[in-house]
Design a protein around this nucleic acid. Structure first.
Lengths: 235, 235
DNA sequence: TTTTGAATGTTGTATATACATTACCAGCGT
DNA sequence: ACGCTGGTAATGTATATACAACATTCAAAA
C-alpha cells in the first residue's frame, strides 16, 4: 500500500471509531509527516484526499478538522447496497428468502414490457449491515435477457452485481416513497412496530429492453439516502 | 490565478470548444510543463484535477485523453414543486406560514457554514395541489448572500425560483429519509393520523458558499419522488 | 482598556529531482 | 507470420525545499 494511503487509513480509522468526533482537530501535515516518517507533501496528500472525500475540512492558517455529518456523501448513483455498506467498513451479508420462476404478477409484466402471465424470475433477498437488516430487495427479472438469473449464489454476489456483469445497463429510473411496511416486510426487517420505511422502486434497462424491476425497502430509522449533484456549466 | 489553474483553463477551453473531441490525446505532463514554463508537478496537478472532475481520463504508461463525456449531470433532478404540480395540469397555491429573521438554530448554522447564533432568514411555506397540502417547505437562507429574501411574495413565486434568479447555484446535496411527522407538521399537512412522510433535506450552494438549507416534507400517501438517470458504460 | 503588531503554526502553491510502474512500439529472431 | 525483448515515454509515488497566505495568540503600545 502506498504511504499516503496508510496515513489515510490511519485517520479514517480514528474517525470511524469515534476516537476523533466531529470538529476534532486532525494532526497537522508536519506532525503526520514526522509520525509516519514521510515528507510533508506525502502527509499533505493524505489530508487533501480525505478533504475531497468530505471526511475532514481544512482551513489555511487554522488546521484540519473532522468534518460534520458523517458519511452522507454517497452519490445517488446506481450503487448496490453491499458496496455502500463495505464503504462504511461495516459487515454485509445477505439471506436469500425466495428464488423462483413465477407467472408475472399484474404490474410487473407491464413494467418489464412483457406479456401478462408470461413467466418471470423472482428473488427476495434481505441485506444485513453488521447483522441488522437494512434492506429487503424484491426483484423481478426478464428471463429472456438473463436466463441464468436463478442459478447464481446471491450470498456471494448481489443481484445487481450479477446483472451488471451479464448485461450492460444503460438506464435506470427510480420512484421513491415513504410507506408503512406490510407484515411480511416487518418480519423480514425484524421490526417490532410499524415504522416509516423508505421504498425505492428501481427499473433498470439495457440496450435490449427492461432487464429488471426491484423494490428496495429500508427501515426509516436505519437508512438515509444521500445524493449530491453539481450543476456544471457549459460542456 | 494560480499556475495550475491557468493550465486547467487552457485544457478546459480546448475541450469545450470542441477542438479536442472525445478520446483526443491531451498534452503530456512534460509537454505542458515545458509549454507553460512550470515544473512537471504543477502541470501534473492540473491534469490530476481535471481527471477527478471527470473531464479527462488518465492511464499510466499511455497518456491522458479527453473523457467520453455524455450525460454528466442528468442525475436526479428534483424539480420545483410548483412546476411539478402545474406539469400535471393541477392547481398550485402556497400559504406562507412563517417569514422571519432568527438566530440560527444548532444544526442550521453549521449547514450554512455560518457562526452559531448569527442571524439567518427563515421561511415556512405550505404548498397545495388542488387544495390539498402536499409539501411543507421549511427553509433557512444565508442573509449575506440573499439579503432581500424576506421581502418577496412567495405566493407568486417559490423560494427556489427566487434563489435561482438571485444567485447562480452550482451544487445541491440531498438527504432523503422516511420519517413520522411532528405534530406541527401534521397540522400543516392536515393529517388526521400520523403517516409516513418523505423528508428531503436539500442544501444548495453557489460559488460564494452555501445559500440555503431546506427541509421538504411530503405525506407519503400523496407524493412520490421520481427520478431518471442514464449512465455511461465503462470502456 | 483597547488597539496594534509581531511571532508562530498551519495550509496553499510551486519547484527540482528520483525512481517505480505501465503501455506502446519498433526491431529482432524464429 | 508470430512471438519475444528492450527502449521510450507516460503516469504514479515520494522527497526536500522554499515561499506565500492566513489564523491565532499574546505582548507591547496607545
Amino acid at each position: 500500500m502506498a504511504k499516503f494511503a496508510t496515513i489515510k487509513e490511519y485517520i479514517y480509522q480514528k474517525i470511524e471509531s469515534g476516537e476523533w468526533p466531529e470538529y476534532h482537530p486532525v494532526s497537522s501535515e508536519n506532525v503526520l509527516a514526522e509520525k509516519f516518517s514521510v515528507s510533508r507533501m506525502t502527509a499533505r496528500r493524505a489530508l487533501q484526499e480525505l478533504s475531497e472525500e468530505g471526511l475532514v475540512t481544512r482551513t489555511r492558517g487554522s488546521g484540519t478538522f473532522v468534518a460534520p455529518l458523517k458519511s452522507q456523501s454517497a452519490l445517488l448513483t446506481i450503487r448496490n447496497i453491499a458496496d455502500e455498506i463495505r464503504l462504511r467498513n461495516h459487515r454485509h451479508h445477505a439471506v436469500v428468502q425466495v428464488l423462483e420462476r413465477v407467472p408475472a404478477p399484474a404490474g410487473i409484466a407491464t413494467a418489464l414490457q412483457m406479456q401478462v402471465g408470461s413467466e418471470v424470475l423472482h428473488s427476495v433477498i434481505t441485506h444485513f449491515e453488521n447483522g441488522q437488516p437494512v434492506q429487503v430487495e424484491d426483484r423481478y427479472v426478464n428471463p429472456t435477457l438473463v436466463p441464468e438469473y436463478l442459478e447464481q449464489d446471491y450470498t456471494q454476489c448481489t443481484p445487481h452485481e450479477y446483472l451488471c456483469e451479464v448485461t450492460p445497463l444503460t438506464e435506470a429510473s427510480h420512484l421513491i416513497e415513504a410507506v408503512l411496511p406490510s407484515k411480511q416486510l416487518m418480519i423480514l426487517l425484524q421490526l417490532d412496530a410499524a415504522e416509516p420505511c423508505l421504498q425505492i422502486q428501481r427499473r433498470t434497462s439495457g440496450r435490449e429492453g427492461v432487464v429488471s424491476q426491484a423494490t428496495l425497502t429500508h427501515p426509516g430509522s436505519r437508512f438515509r439516502l444521500g445524493g449530491h449533484m453539481t450543476f456544471k456549466v457549459a460542456r
